[in-house]
Amino acid sequence: MKKLALLFAGLSLFVATGCNNDDETVHEVPLTGVWQPIKEVHTLVPVGGSPVSDEITYTTCQKDSRWRFNTETAGKVTWWRDSALNPGSCEIDEDHNFTYTYDKGTKAIQIKYQGIVEPDKGKVTKLDDTTLNLTIEDTTDPTEYQSVTYTMKRVVQQ
């Protein structure tokens, strides 16, 4: 009987500790890095109305733009555009340093551009090894919701 009790105790201990699966660790992808914008989607949802979305696919020059999340709190965005003076070539359109806060739990992000008073607020709606979807929301008009979602791909540094 003692052997049966010991066997039952050992089996209970095995079941209690054997269910831990250390392979289920969550792979956390960092926001830090360099990101290339591919497209953006503008969404407008009027109160009581139907949502409208417009997708904007970037030109080759616009795809030369970069978002750099250098640290856990600072970065820089450089936007390129097609040159009006030299057709077929690209030129810098905007170049802004920024600070940001990012809550990994809620995915909320706030970006404060240097020289601009009001920060952008939004969410990181997708973040994996290769893709970042960053949605910036505009809730200043109480009669409508507006957002811009930037789809970007990670640029591997060499």
Results as ranks from 00 to 15, higher is better:
86 N>G: 00
121 K>S: 14
12 S>W: 06
69 F>R: 05
32 T>S: 15
140 T>P: 00
152 M>C: 14
45 V>L: 15
48 G>D: 05
40 E>T: 08
24 E>P: 00
132 L>C: 01
67 W>H: 13
130 T>L: 12
119 P>E: 09
10 G>K: 05
105 G>T: 14
142 P>F: 06
121 K>I: 09
128 D>K: 09
112 K>R: 12
59 T>H: 05
130 T>A: 14
19 C>R: 11
21 N>Y: 07
12 S>V: 14
78 T>E: 10
51 P>Y: 03
19 C>F: 12
34 V>C: 05
113 Y>H: 13
107 K>A: 09
4 L>V: 11
137 E>H: 05
48 G>I: 04
130 T>W: 07
158 Q>E: 10
90 C>W: 05
69 F>L: 08
139 T>D: 14
69 F>E: 06
94 E>V: 03
71 T>C: 04
19 C>I: 14
21 N>H: 11
66 R>I: 08
84 A>D: 10
127 L>Q: 06
112 K>I: 01
9 A>M: 13
15 V>F: 13
143 T>E: 11
66 R>C: 00
96 H>S: 10
13 L>E: 00
10 G>R: 03
12 S>G: 14
95 D>H: 07
133 N>Q: 14
149 T>H: 01
126 K>H: 11
153 K>W: 00
100 Y>R: 09
6 L>Y: 15
87 P>Y: 07
94 E>Q: 13
102 Y>D: 02
26 V>Y: 10
58 Y>I: 02
62 Q>L: 04
104 K>Y: 04
41 V>G: 04
13 L>H: 03
122 G>C: 04
33 G>I: 04
42 H>C: 01
92 I>F: 04
95 D>M: 09
101 T>G: 13
39 K>A: 11
39 K>Q: 13
145 Y>K: 12
148 V>A: 00
106 T>M: 05
15 V>Y: 11
39 K>S: 15
142 P>K: 06
59 T>N: 08
52 V>R: 14
16 A>N: 02
31 L>Q: 11
64 D>N: 14
48 G>Q: 08
96 H>G: 02
125 T>D: 02
74 A>M: 09
103 D>R: 10
70 N>A: 15
122 G>P: 11
72 E>I: 09
15 V>N: 00
80 W>Y: 15
80 W>K: 08
88 G>C: 06
123 K>A: 02
36 Q>I: 08
121 K>F: 04
36 Q>L: 03
26 V>K: 15
9 A>L: 15
79 W>K: 09
85 L>T: 13
98 F>V: 04
47 V>M: 12
67 W>L: 13
156 V>K: 14
22 D>C: 05
114 Q>N: 14
152 M>I: 02
21 N>R: 13
113 Y>F: 15
70 N>W: 01
88 G>W: 10
83 S>W: 07
56 I>P: 00
27 H>N: 13
